[in-house]
Design a binder for these strands. Sequence first.
DNA 1: GCGATCCTGGCC
DNA 2: GGCCAGGATCGC
Length: 273
Amino acid sequence: MPELPEVECTRKTLMGLENLKIKSVYLSQVAPIKHAQKSDILKKSKGAQISSIYRKAKYLFFVLDEKHELIIHLGMSGKLLIEKNEARHKHCHLELLLNDQSKLRFIDPRRFGIISFIEFQKWPDHPYAKNMGPDYLERSLSDKKFIERCRRHPKINLKSLCLNQSVAAGLGNIYACESLYDAKLNPQRLIQNCSDEDLKRLYQSAKKILRLGIKKGGSTLRDYVNGQGHRGKMKDFLKVYDREDQESLDKKGKVLRFTQQGRSTFWVPEVQN
DNA sequence: GCGATCCTGGCC
DNA sequence: GGCCAGGATCGC
């Protein structure tokens, strides 16, 4: 479900939780906890204060007392919601009861999401961090660095490159299709057949599209909502995604769909070379 | 590098 | 019933 813009919009709506204290923690029997112990999370979160909340690519980090960090990845169907009196959802896997009586809930029917827990600032040592390149919107990433990272994978196609979080992180299927369309690049083209100029254009398009996604509050195709339960408006600005056999939003041609690496790619052949 | 795989739910 | 879904890892 959520790509970088949706995770960022979720983060923004959770900012009000900073400095609140965790009174109690609930974890479901089937909570998707990875590389952490349930007992550890329960023990070390209880009574802790949420000192800050930050994001890297599609991961959210809740810093607890500057001693530990609770990590959440929303996967395909996950959402974080601030609730008060609502009954606990069937697929709620984590609930933090806070000292203002609100509850932060992680709801994830498919359980492709991730709950993890680390010592403060130990993310670089986490197994999942090793496969993650720089966030597209990170200031330290540059045209030159992006191109250099792309060149490590000469044999993969541009769509795979976009979805490969080790090159640069944050794009998912929607924003990958939109970025390739914006950059006028054929999703099937191999990296070895791209010029530096092509790759630079892809990087610049990705940043532009991701920023627009954030500005519009994220894409709600079916059920994405931010921490306050509000839908995003970016769907109305998507030019090719989910528009098979229709004209692209900017009327430059007919959108076709095909499957690449098991995922749908939406593109306009007349525009993308 | 690629396909299978982890899951539930919605839609045809 | 079958297919599809906003993700990412794992084995070959």
